[in-house]
């Protein structure tokens, strides 16, 4: 899980072009949107693309988005659960 969270931070920085943010600046439980990392609605779409491109996971229910993308940890938990389903 720790390795996956670290990878996600690097992928998010790359995918969202967060050039002034370093992986260590992003807390595992820090909210990614609004008061946290300050991501916006276009970033949310890019996160969906990121899940597809890097992890081969599609968000089946759009209403799950806010919970899945709440933080690095919730993303990692979702990826882990989906990979387990695929196995």
């Amino acid at each position: 899980m720790e390795k996956l969270m670290q990878d996600l931070k690097v992928q998010i920085i790359q995918q969202l072009n967060l050039q002034e943010v370093k992986p260590e600046d992003i807390g595992n439980d820090q909210p990614l949107f609004k008061e946290g990392l300050g991501l916006d609605s276009i970033d949310a779409l890019e996160l969906i693309v990121l899940l597809q491109q890097f992890h081969n996971i599609r968000i089946a229910k759009p209403e799950d988005g806010p919970n899945v993308f709440y933080s690095i940890r919730t993303m990692a938990e979702y990826i882990t659960a989906e990979k387990a389903k695929q196995a």
């Binding site: 969202l16 072009n17 276009i42 970033d43 779409l45 890019e46 693309v49 597809q52």
Partner: peptide
């Protein structure tokens, strides 16, 4: 492949 939302805007 996958259309980029960040470019589209």
């Amino acid at each position: 492949e996958i259309a980029s939302p960040a470019l589209f805007v």
